[in-house]
Amino acid sequence: MFQIRVEYFAILREHVGCTHESLSTSAATVADLYAELDRRHVFPALGRLKVAVNDEFCDWSTPLRDGDSVVFIPPVAGG
């Protein structure tokens, strides 16, 4: 088990009811972490999400390390 921080924005922030949470996990990848959190929060289905670790976009297969900060990115709508 290791500690990670998850930050939530927009529709996910409203759904979860907080801007961030810290948790202990044994999730091997960011996809595994999403699945673990989805079981707890039952995220709205949003089609294609992107994901960032430590403020950079990354693949869903990216391995997690202790202290990582993860953001799941719903479809964007700037402009």
Partner: peptide, 13 residues
């Protein structure tokens, strides 16, 4: 502007 709309993590409510 096209790339910003597609790529920058900004959400609009």
């Amino acid at each position: 502007i096209d790339e910003v709309k597609h790529r920058v993590p900004i959400w609009k409510k």
